[in-house]
Computed example of a mutant assay.
Amino acid sequence: MNINLKGRKAIVTGSTAGIGRAIVEGLARAGASVVVNGRGEERVGKAVREIRQLFPESEIDGVVADLATAEGAASFFKQVEGADILINNLGTAKPKSFDELTDADWLDLFQINVLSGVRMTRHYLPKMVKRGWGRVVFISSESALAIPKEMIDYGMTKTAQLAISRGVAELVGGTGVTVNSVLPGPTRSEIMSNWMKSGAESQGITQAAAEQQFLDTTRPTSLINRFATTEEVANMVVYVCSEQASATTGTALRVDGGIVRSIA
């Protein structure tokens, strides 16, 4: 399959590293111009320089903005007028037991993982509809379906993304705009790798051993029995953004290694 996104402009939120960075590279490889986003000038600048070197024929820009805030989103909108593709990738997780989670913890994570995507979609979606073509993708998680007891707040935000994605897809049905969610499983992203590295060091084992331990004890239903790569997740996202995926909308596409024991 030859995916060609030349002439398309994409925004990938939270994309200086990890899955977001891999998605930027995948879209650039397919010919799209891409806007990289992060909160820090240094990280955004470094990512833009590196990606421009990899894909000199693609237009790569960077916008520094904290999209977990209304002010940050407003700043972003002033710098990027429109886009054909919006990847709502910004997200984080902060493992904490349920009884220790404060109201502020719940609200802060909701702002980052959910409202950032709501703000971005609300702003860029009408212009896509007007043009008669667009792609919106929410990067959710298998934790949206299999809520982790150690991160109930995280699972809640990821389930919320599925509801928003499906609802917006219903809203724009028949317009040429598709809206989907992609659900990664355990992935060697920056955040996950840092967790595994920290756990490995505390136990005196290798990171690979820590990953296997995590799978065995926390995600034993994995069928690939390994962490996915960020590129494997990005491959699904790039496909969903393509012309070839024009009949795929309103759905949740899993890149979870078979963790969720369901055929639907």
Rank of each mutant, 00 (worst) to 15 (best):
E190S: 15
A234V: 07
G20V: 04
S58V: 06
V233M: 06
P95W: 09
G38T: 05
L90Q: 13
V35Y: 06
I259D: 02
A169Y: 10
N113H: 08
E170M: 15
G258S: 09
G91P: 01
S58C: 12
Y154W: 12
G167P: 10
A32I: 06
V24K: 05
F227R: 03
S181G: 12
G40Q: 13
S143K: 00
K158I: 09
I259C: 04
M192A: 15
A28Y: 02
A47S: 14
C241E: 03
R49W: 07
V64G: 08
M1H: 14
I152E: 04
E190R: 15
V80E: 11
Y124M: 13
Q213H: 09
F77P: 04
S262D: 14
S181E: 00
G117R: 00
G20Y: 01
P186A: 07
L115D: 02
K130G: 10
E100C: 14
V168W: 03
V240P: 03
M120T: 10
S143Y: 01
E50D: 14
P95K: 09
V64D: 06
A209R: 04
K94F: 10
T16P: 03
A234S: 14
A209P: 00
E100I: 08
A163E: 10
S15F: 02
S193W: 09
S15L: 01
N88W: 07
L90P: 00
A146V: 15
G40S: 11
E57T: 12
S202A: 14
V34R: 04
P184F: 06
F76V: 02
L5D: 00
E50G: 08
V136P: 00
I112P: 03
L215C: 05
N89A: 14
I51Q: 02
L115H: 05
L115Y: 13
A160C: 13
V237A: 12
D103P: 02
V172F: 11
G62S: 09
E150M: 14
I205A: 11
C241K: 00
R52D: 05
V63T: 06
E50K: 08
L162E: 14
I60T: 11
N4T: 10
V114H: 03
R43Q: 15
S202W: 11
G185D: 01
L90I: 13
A144P: 06
G62H: 06
N225K: 15
A245D: 07
S242Q: 04
V129N: 05
G45P: 05
E211G: 02
Y124T: 02
P184K: 05
N225E: 15
D66F: 06
A65W: 01
Y239R: 05
K96P: 13
D256F: 01
A22P: 00
K130M: 09
I191S: 09
N113I: 07
V237K: 02
S181M: 07
Q203G: 08
R49K: 15
R119S: 05
S15C: 06
V34I: 13
V137C: 08
A17P: 01
R135D: 00
F138T: 02
P56L: 11
T102D: 06
K94H: 13
A73C: 14
N88Y: 08
G258N: 04
I263F: 12
G62C: 11
Q207L: 14
S75D: 12
N37P: 12
L183Q: 07
K46P: 03
A10S: 10
G132K: 08
